[in-house]
Each structure stands twice: as C-alpha cells, then as structure tokens.
Nucleic acid binder design. Structure first.
Lengths: 309, 309
DNA sequence: GGTGTCCATAGGGTTCTTCTATGGATGTTT
DNA sequence: AAACATCCATAGAAGAACCCTATGGACACC
C-alpha cells in the first residue's frame, strides 16, 4: 500500500487538532474515515504515529516529526496546485513573446493595456526582433508566441493573421503631401526618402514595390530604428515610409501618416507559435488581447483575424 | 477532483521519459492508465500539461514547471516515507533516554554495544540523572525512556523491572574482607565507609538498612560520584557500598566487589516510560538490548524481567 | 451510576482505478 | 504505395478503494 496525500493530510489534521473527531470535522469527512486512513498510514509505514486515548490523540515522536514534515509538504503541494489553477484561470502566468519593433509601438502596448485590465496577474516578457529572426526564436522555444510577418511556408509553425499592415508615408505637419488623401508612389519617389536598413523586412517590401514599377529607390537617409525615421521626418528632413503599425496616432500633428496608392505596399502581420504545441492560458489571453487591439482603435483598416498554415 | 500523488508521479515520469508508453513501463502500469491519470490531472487543474503527438509527448511550459516542482515534492515525500520505514524497521531513529549514573557504567554500555550490533542506525541520547529526578524527566517528555529505581506508585508512568541491583562492598584487592564470601553488615560497620551523598537513592537505601538493624552509619567519606568512591576504595581509604551495577568487573583485581549479607540492601532498577504512550521502534530495540544486557554477563544474579504497575 | 467524549468496527453502496482489447493518427520502411 | 511501427485515446468490465451510517467499547467527569 502506497502512502497517499490524503493520509498525509489526515495525520496533519489529527496532530494539529489533537483529536480524530475534530480533524474529521475540519476535513469534512466522517470520523471513521480518519480511523481508516490513519490505520492505513500506520500500516504502510509500520509505525505507531498516534497514541489514542479517551481524551484525544497525541502523536508519538515519529508521528510528530512526520506530521510536521507532511504539513510543509502538503502546503507546498497545495500551493503548487493553486498556482497552476491561477495560470489556468488566466489570473497568473508568464508569456514570452517575440514582436516586431513596429508593432511594439502601437498594437502591442494597446494589447498589453487590455490584458492588464482583464488579467492583471499575467506577466509578458517581450523580446523585439526583426522579422527574419522571429521564426528561429519560436522554433527554438525561446518564446512561446511571436508577432511577425508572413514568411514562406513554415511547417514547424502555426500562424494566424493578426492584421494587414499598410505602409504609410510619414510627413511633417504642413507638408505638401499632407491632407490630400492617398499619394501615388511616384510622388514619393520625388521626395527625399527616409527608409530603414536594407535588411529590414519593411525595406525589402518597399524596394520590391518600387522595383515592380521600374523605379529605383535612393533613400536620403537609412536608419535602424523607426523612431529615428519618425524623428527625421518630423524635423522636415524628408518623407519616411513606415508600417502604419509603427506610427502612433498620438504623434499628430507633428507628423502625419499619409496613405500610399500601392496595393502591394503592405504586409501581413501574423501571430506564430510552434505547430503541435498548445498555447498556455496566459498566451491565449494575450492572443485575445492582441486580436482586439488589432481590430480596435489604432487601425481602422484592421482585418478580421483568420487562420492560415 | 483532488490532485493525487499518483497523478504527480505520472506527470513526472511522462515528462522525464517523453512518452506515455515508456513512463507506463517505468511505473509498472499500463499505458491507458497513464492516459486516464494525466487527463484527470489536466482536468483537475484546467490546464494542458502535455502536447501529445505520434512521436511522443512534450510538456507545455506549465507542464514542465509543474513536473519539476512535482519531481522535487515527490522526491521529498518518498524520502520521508523511506525514513519513517527505516525507523519502523529499527534501522534508524533516535531514543532519548534518562539513566541512573550507576547503570551508566555497566549495563548501559553493554546494552548500547548490543544495540549497535543489531541496529547500527539507532542513536541514543543519554541523560544521566539521579533517581528522584527521573520520573519528572519522563513525565515532561524530555526523555522517552528511563532507567530508574522503583519509587512509589506513579499513575503517569509504566514501569518494567529491569534488574535487581544488590549493594556490594567495594574493597581494594588484598583487603581482609576480600575472598571470604558474603560479609555481614556488622563487619562493614567496623570499616571506614565510603558512601554517596545523603540525598542519593543508594545512600537512602544504605542508611535505612543500617537503621533497621539499630546501627548508626558514620561514613568516613561522602562523595557525589560513584567513580570517586571506587577510586577512594582502590586507594585503600576505606570500603565503599555501591550498587553492583556500578562496579565494572573489569576493575578487578584493583578493587573487588564483595556481596553483603543483608536481604534488604538491594533495589529494583526499572525501565519507565509514559503511561499510554507507545514506545517508538528504536526505543523498543533499546529496551530489548537492555533486557539482554541485564540478564547477561555483567550480573550473574540478574533476575528475569517482569512487569509491574 | 449516568452521561458525554472519543475512537474502533461492521456493513454496504458508490466511486475509482486499472486492466485488456482495440482503434485512429502519423511517421517509416520496403 | 502499401505495409509496418509507434504512440496515444477509447471502451468495457473487474476489482479495489473509499466513505458513509450505525453501533459498540473504553474511559473520564459529574
């Protein structure tokens, strides 16, 4: 016969309360149940743990020792189970997330704010990474969830469309292109352009878009951080082409985001996680918050979430 | 549904071995058993702990965390149960014992040697105390077991006769009283006597014995420690009256123990423990060793152990 | 001597547990 | 491509475990 946790609880209760009867009440079982459980425990160990009498029961030396140790153990056990249930209830937990820098400025903060409202106990570790690094992070298990761009088919990943991210021209307030609705790509080509690094996924997209129309791109500035690009644009040094997800509406009117007339100047921003791995409850809560944020205020053109391989 | 230790073991095994099938082998159960146990655990927590696939099962983040924590917990649990079983098997444990100084020199060392042979893992904490202090030590629970003298009726104590301890005259080798068999009490009265403190149980006994015969006792020396008394006797300063249990046969021929002709010059040495409390397995082992020692070599006149209130 | 408290026992019903046998899904080998 | 191997899930049934109510015996306290 194995020792069960119930037997351990029974011993702890009887030793603490000094009586089978009171322990039974406290545990919500009948008194004979405790008689049986404790006899079972004593038989399993081959030890007398309690000296019974008409005035109650006192533990033997071993009974006392065991009760104390079992008490700590059962406490730890319950704590552990409790924590696990907190996680299950999305009231606690940790999500490790990789995210594109662009979404890090708008959608993600919005989503985190929503998450904090609904699930204040969930912590999120954010790792920003450029688009092409993201699949590796997920595959290596360094993050559970990622916000990236739709790349080629990745059998090891499951993805879900989060939002369609249009590139916008970022101009200083009062610029000639501002306020006139969508501008054609050719109009942009005439401006001094502020673009990101040639390796960045945004830049690859921009280059390809210009190339498809036979136009060459010669940026006036190349920067690493989108925030730098916005700073330059605000200073009137040129027009930046950035994903709309990176342009915080709160920056207006110092800089304005102007739509660009180019159907292919957009990318899919997707959620990704390892195929065959279920998302933890905290991750699911974060996903829900991200969907809401992507559908919500900051991006009126936001698409409905769908699912793709 | 409560979480059981079996479920915890199941999770630990599956996470360690990466597969239900292998874990089932390792645990000695069928594979469906594990399916059921783990589903139960997952339901109890409301969490997915394992992502199953055809190539085995990998834990989710929570599954991993829980498996590690459960692993430690189950390890502690098993250790605890194992230790308890060691104690039950008299292979380990601790006995706190109070003992008269007299038995501390002969019977007790002999018993401890026997105990060490049979149960090398049992440790004994010895507290020597004069006879009248012993009942209080037992009643207060400071010791589990005691070797004392038969005192008045003590309802809180259970006692068991260990040996009948005759007083002997301790004389230096070559003394006139040596070698002539038992000496009458009157012969002793003519000698310079080495006795213990008036409060000691031995002295009380000696005084009473002399008084019963109308003889007055005027000791030449009064000492606290029996070893001092023996030392004085060896130095030829007088004749000591001591319990035979205190006189180590190994001291011969420097000093000799000579029987005294006085039926009442003896005392009962008893084992005592709290009434209504069971003795721990280590204590039982010690009791057995003490009985053997009391019956064995050092005291050929040793009585059979009996039981009294 | 009655009464109350405490633990043990007995018997029975319900729930759990575990087993064997089998099936479905998915890689792997021939 | 088909056969095979591996892995986990499901089903059904037997057995064990568990817990309850009812009751009894021991002992202390009025």
């Amino acid at each position: 016969m194995d020792v069960s946790i119930r037997q351990a609880r029974a011993l702890v209760a009887v030793v603490r309360l000094g009586s089978f009867t009171r322990a039974a009440q406290a545990l919500g079982v009948s008194q004979p149940t405790l008689t049986v459980q404790l006899r079972g425990l004593e038989e399993a160990l081959g030890l007398t743990l309690l000296d019974r009498s008409v005035r109650g029961s006192v533990p033997t030396a071993e009974g006392q020792r065991l009760a104390e140790a079992f008490g700590r153990l059962v406490g730890d056990f319950d704590l552990l189970v409790g924590e696990a249930r907190e996680v299950a209830a999305q009231r606690a937990g940790l999500v490790r997330l990789a995210a594109l820098p662009s979404v890090g400025t708008t959608v993600l903060p919005e989503a985190l704010a929503r998450l904090r409202e609904g699930s204040p106990g969930i912590r999120v570790m954010i790792r920003d990474a450029v688009a092409h690094r993201i699949p590796a992070l997920v595959k290596a298990g360094e993050v559970e969830l990622a916000i990236g761009t739709e790349l080629g088919p990745e059998p090891e990943l499951r993805t879900e469309r989060l939002l369609r991210d249009r590139m916008v021209a970022v101009v200083p307030g009062g610029h000639a292109l501002a306020g006139a609705g969508a501008v054609p790509l050719s109009a942009l080509a005439a401006e001094p352009l502020i673009l990101t690094d040639p390796q960045s996924s945004v830049r690859v997209l921009v280059d390809r878009c210009f190339a498809a129309r036979g136009m060459a791109v010669s940026p006036a500035y190349e920067v690493t951080y989108m925030s730098t690009a916005i700073g330059l644009a605000r200073a009137g040094l040129g027009v930046a082409i950035l994903p709309s997800s990176a342009v915080d509406a709160a920056l207006a009117p110092a800089v304005l985001a102007v739509p660009v007339e180019a159907a292919d100047l957009e990318r899919e921003v997707v959620l990704a996680w390892r195929a065959g791995r279920s998302l933890s409850p905290p991750a699911r809560a974060l996903v829900a918050a991200l969907r809401m944020a992507a559908r919500g205020e900051p991006h009126p053109a936001g698409p409905q979430p769908g699912s793709s391989a």
